[in-house]
Write a protein that binds this DNA or RNA. Structure first.
Lengths: 200, 200
DNA sequence: GTCTATAGATTGATAGAC
DNA sequence: GTCTATCAATCTATAGAC
């Protein structure tokens, strides 16, 4: 009689937090960071602005929480990609496909958020480290994979971290071009480019 | 006595337009597109919002003019890069350097604007073609250069347009990482990556 | 913990003087 | 062609009821 309500309270709180973050992701991806008002996010979460202020202290707190989520979501996505395929080329293909044609709507949102949050991090020195950490984490994971030879033996550029940096860079830059003009960046083109960076 | 004032009027108008566009570039790069209020842009141009409405009809008109400028500025920059150096590797180096460490403050603004305007173009279907045209133009210019062999003979990936797409993608993606963490992306790393894409 | 109500500032845009 | 004055809408954030 005493433990149930306490647990339920906690669950409700967690649920509200989750709803607010999900709503923030969708609304920010749709209207941009500056265009996503506190009220709009709260309404999309079927809560009120009061709840948002209680959980995150304000808009900037929400953005920081969003940056954290962004970091984790990417790490999980990379992990999943690398486990999926069998040989080097297939791994590059699946990695690119998941990046450029995300399977879920949630993943599609993250692609636009990528640039939205990157811009925010470039302008706000206090959150720059958070975003930098995210990229560093992705690079490290990918570098480990390169070292382990999952993309095939790397005889060309031999530092794994360098290859990882290049792979990420190319995928991001190609995806930007594809968003505006899907025909300009075929899957074959992207995979050929990624292959050129991984080895001879 | 009759032609002087007519010419001066026209010059004054052109000058105001120029000031407004320059101010828009700086303010938008600084605060973002949504954060750049009409008043702030006008004030930075040492004019008033009335002048801005007369020239561009409103904020969206200003953004479209900015998109046009963006297109032209990039075309000029690429042109200048390719004329500058003598051999293939040096051309890649100078192209990357001008992209990642812009010599002028104006050029530095464009790098942040790149993502700001790209996001805007992704969200506003009516301006998507403008941004797509810009990337297509850059690709074409660069592809011509690749065909002409300015980066050395291309034995690897043989379609020039493909190579151009990859080069642009890699530069954009590397520059993003460098903004957050300059140490993570050295010039040598970038040039090595670009070289891997241009040839064998 | 979530709500309503509201304060206080800022926004895009327009009308009319000069 | 550029200005001032102003409107209605929207924003972040807070206070206090429940």
């Amino acid at each position: 009689m005493r433990r149930m309500p306490a647990l339920t309270q906690e669950q409700r709180r967690a649920e509200t937090r989750r709803r607010l973050l999900d709503a923030a992701r969708v609304v920010v991806a749709d209207r941009g960071l500056a265009g996503a008002s506190v009220d709009a996010v709260a309404e999309a979460a079927e809560r009120t602005s009061g709840a948002l202020y209680d959980h995150f202290g304000g808009k900037s707190g929400l953005v920081i929480a969003l940056l954290d989520e962004w970091k984790d979501a990417t790490a999980r996505a990379i992990q999943a990609d690398l486990a999926e395929a069998v040989d080097g080329r297939a791994r590059l293909e699946s990695m690119w496909r998941n990046f450029a044609e995300p399977p879920s709507e949630e993943a599609a949102d993250w692609t636009l958020l990528e640039h939205e949050l990157w811009l925010h991090a470039c302008r706000q020195p206090e959150v720059t480290p958070l975003a930098a950490q995210r990229y560093a984490g992705i690079r490290r994971r990918l570098a480990d994979a390169v070292s382990a030879g999952v993309f095939g033996p790397s005889d060309g550029i031999d530092d794994a971290e360098v290859v990882a940096t290049l792979l990420i860079g190319l995928m991001v830059g190609l995806e930007m071009q594809r968003r505006l003009d899907p025909d300009a960046v075929s899957d074959a083109l992207a995979v050929a480019g990624l292959e050129a960076l991984t080895g001879p």
